[in-house]
Design a protein around this nucleic acid. Structure first.
Lengths: 152, 152
DNA sequence: TATTGTTATACTCTATAACTATA
DNA sequence: TATAGTTATAGAGTATAACAATA
């Protein structure tokens, strides 16, 4: 085998000022976290966005798609497809709203509620792995530092 | 105008345990940061991934696409398109490698180097806005907490 | 046999615009 | 006029698989 060359993969690469950009660090962490979430939730084939939608519907039954979209910072056009998918799996139902015939009241179905119990268990397991990865103290510090940040 | 109804947008929405998930908080922060980055760099129409690639090539001229891809955690198939775009704008050039005829040595062009100087200025301006948004102390704390995290 | 760059495909997510039915 | 939901489109990013040239 040849000695590795000057432009080879094996050599260290200088990231220069990238680590001074919070966006760079945050993005890399987020990718790792999402990858672990998706793997952990693989038995339910549930992605982070779907989990956040189910969580909000579970905690706020009867709210409209707009309310959920605004709370999560998801485009309402995107939420349509997310709800479509969850509805197709019989996790979520759109109930005609009594007050405003334009909107739907969102609820978890019975099946969705039962699934959500187990989904939550896996999500908690995932979070333990995140804490382990970044360090328990760092995990607490990060939750505290980022608490209440809304990207409005 | 009617009083707002029970499932209306105006009411508070309970996020339940979402804020205990680091992934949720990190994702929302990352979206805000990227949005600001894209706006700030709009004069160059440069996105975060393109900026990271130019930064690494600038700091490590002559390295291969694989080396850059590994350093940034970008799929090599994806990097092909990123380099294509930067090359089409005459920011980056692929030079045939002397040692390994399979690979290209990546360099910023003269034009790319000049642009990068100004791009860096805008990126620093962006970072000041990030620090302002999360708070200067929190910004420092976050950089320290996330330093060295690699999503390998 | 393994690696580099490339092409191709599929899916997720973001961003917009336009349409409908209601308000 | 404005809003809720929907449909459609375009682009970025991720994940794979396969191929040619080269190691």
């Amino acid at each position: 085998m040849q000695p590795r060359s000057a432009d080879d993969t094996g050599l260290q690469v200088d990231l220069d000022r990238l680590p001074d950009h919070l966006g760079y660090l945050v993005r890399r962490l987020q990718r790792w976290i999402f990858k672990d979430f998706i793997q952990t939730l693989a038995p339910f084939d549930l992605r982070p966005a779907q989990y956040s939608v189910m969580t909000v519907i579970h905690a706020n039954p009867g709210r409209s798609q707009m309310a959920v979209a605004l709370a999560l910072g998801i485009e309402r056009a995107r939420l349509v497809h997310l709800i479509d998918g969850l509805q197709a799996r019989n996790y979520v139902e759109r109930v005609p709203s009594a007050n405003d015939r334009r909107s739907h009241a969102l609820h978890l179905t019975r099946h969705g509620g039962i699934a959500f119990d187990r989904i939550r268990t896996l999500a908690a397991e995932h979070e333990r792995r995140v804490a382990e990865r970044v360090g328990p103290e760092q995990h607490k510090a990060l939750l505290r530092l980022l608490a209440g940040f809304a990207d409005g």
